[in-house]
């Protein structure tokens, strides 16, 4: 058995497919490519594929990761080539390399960088300064839905960087860097908190979110 770590992209065409959908996409692509995946033992065996934390539905990415354990001897380069032939339009493996089978992806992923664009629904002056004030607060509290109900968390603990890339009449483009692991707040949680802070200035369902990079350790 060997483990391949794969960096893949998901563009505009497939930005609405969910994390669960994506798992099926890769399973079926593996079958089309006729690549033998390792299966877990037990009553209900499932293919050994693991992903990093889910990307929010509607977002694109150019640097998400997926690990797959293979039963057959196949080079990373060959794997990438065969998979890209059969993946649906919009999903592509850009990098593939072998890692130790005892090297879990989840332990490696540390942080992610995002570009977030959102439209203003009303005028907002002095955005740059307000952003700075927003970050400089002692705590950035926000409510997050979890499996066990709503709870308050401090975004500050997760936020590594936030700055405006473009401030235009109609929209704002942000650079966001957040810690990344299961259950952490995502850029939309941040957007919500920022919107409240600025006094409800964004058209909240007009956003475009792109994951620019995932930082591995």
């Amino acid at each position: 058995m060997k483990r391949l770590r794969n960096k893949y992209t998901k563009d505009e065409r497939v930005r609405f497919i969910s994390h669960l959908d994506l798992l099926r996409v890769f399973q079926r692509a593996l079958r089309r490519a006729d690549i033998k995946v390792a299966f877990s033992q037990g009553f209900n065996p499932h293919p050994k594929i693991s992903f990093g934390p889910a990307l929010v539905v509607g977002a694109t990415t150019e640097a998400d990761y997926m690990d797959v354990d293979l039963e057959e001897e196949i080079s990373a380069e060959e794997f990438k080539k065969r998979m890209n032939k059969v993946l649906p339009p919009g999903i592509k493996i850009v990098e593939s390399y072998e890692v130790d089978v005892n090297d879990p992806l989840s332990k490696r992923i540390k942080a992610a960088e995002y570009i977030l664009k959102v439209n203003f629904k009303k005028n907002c002056k002095d955005v740059e300064n307000k952003l700075e004030e927003f970050i400089k607060r002692d705590a950035i509290e926000l409510e997050k839905e979890t499996k066990s109900g709503k709870k308050m968390i401090d975004l500050k603990f997760y936020l590594l960087d936030l700055k405006a890339l473009e401030i235009k009449e109609g929209y704002l483009k942000l650079y966001i860097k957040l810690k990344l692991e299961e259950g952490v707040p995502n850029p939309l949680n941040l957007l919500k908190a920022l919107n409240e802070y600025l006094g409800d200035v964004f058209e909240m369902d007009s956003y475009k979110l792109h994951r620019k990079n995932i930082i591995l350790e």
Binding site: F16, D21, R28, G58, P88
Partner: peptide
């Protein structure tokens, strides 16, 4: 698409 439930009902682009 961002505003509706299950947007892949409408987006097309399937294999």
């Amino acid at each position: 698409f961002i505003k509706v439930n299950k947007p892949t009902r409408y987006t097309g682009g399937e294999l």
